[in-house]
Amino acid sequence: MSDEFDITETLDVKGASCPMPVVKTKSAIDELDEDEVLEVVATDSGSMSDIDGWATGTDGVELLEQVEDGDVYKHYVQKTA
């Protein structure tokens, strides 16, 4: 968790592997309004690179932070448009 931004929704994709974390993140972001932040909680280690790549290649989203917390990978994605 970070103090720098408010989390609007949390998406739990623990146990799911590629391509689920990215595809579900996309669907969850679609449900948010501009400036809201999605927290994605995953156990797939590939999600660190994949969600970064997805956010870089996708308009209207920004990856604010990624945190590795033991076996869990947390991603904070903001909808920017």
Binding site: K26, S27, W54, T58
Partner: peptide, 11 residues
């Protein structure tokens, strides 16, 4: 199917 669904997530 993995590439297709992921590409769609990119829009």
């Amino acid at each position: 199917l993995i590439l297709a669904s992921t590409a769609a997530a990119f829009g």
